[in-house]
Computed example of a mutant assay.
Amino acid sequence: MPATPQHHPAWSPAGAAADSGPDGTDLQLYQEKFRRRLPHALDDLRGPTQGVVEAPATVVWSGLRAFELGNERQLMSLYRTVLAEGMREDLCALLNRDILLRWWPTLRILVSTTVCGVWEERFPQLRALADVPPAQPPARRRRHHRGPAAA
């Protein structure tokens, strides 16, 4: 037995792929983690289509937790986080089928290759969108300083 404790890599796509053996066991376990969370069908994704969505702390544990679905950047942030961190119940409650399909060409490049692969493997509708170019990122709104001189 080694004198120093064995370090297990953090569960991340890079860590799982780099430390998997010849048979890819670690990567397979990582993929299975996401497969178990998948909804049974895309129609199970009945999340809101407008307004503000408050994500639970079990999904978003730091930073912004309320997302305005009318703001494309916030929508992408919510969906990316839920796809990566949400359990099946979270996916079904927070994601919407039509929004997911509309934005999948962009989302697929924002999530890990493992998450993308698992979703496209299970849902041919998403795989069919793999060659559609992603949407241009929305322009950032510049905040104009309105100090005393602007008054």
Rank of each mutant, 00 (worst) to 15 (best):
V59H: 13
R73C: 07
S62G: 05
M76A: 01
G63D: 07
S62W: 15
A57M: 10
V52F: 10
Y79V: 01
L78D: 11
R73P: 01
W61G: 01
S77I: 11
G70T: 10
N71S: 11
Q50S: 14
F67P: 00
T58P: 00
R80P: 04
V53K: 02
Q74W: 04
L64N: 14
G51P: 05
P56A: 07
E68F: 13
L69P: 01
E54I: 13
L75S: 05
V59I: 08
E68K: 09
L64H: 04
G70H: 15
V52M: 09
A55W: 03
R80T: 15
Y79E: 02
A57R: 12
L78G: 04
M76K: 10
V52D: 08
T58C: 14
L64P: 01
W61Y: 06
R65H: 08
R80N: 02
G70M: 12
G51A: 08
W61S: 03
V52N: 08
G70Y: 13
N71H: 05
Q74Y: 06
L64R: 15
R65V: 08
R80S: 10
G70F: 11
A57E: 14
L69F: 10
A55G: 03
L69T: 02
P56C: 03
T58G: 11
T81C: 05
W61Q: 04
G51Q: 13
T81G: 00
R73E: 13
Q74T: 01
W61C: 04
V53I: 06
G70L: 09
T49M: 10
E54A: 13
A66L: 02
A66M: 09
W61D: 12
G70R: 12
L64A: 05
L64M: 14
A55D: 05
V53E: 01
V60K: 13
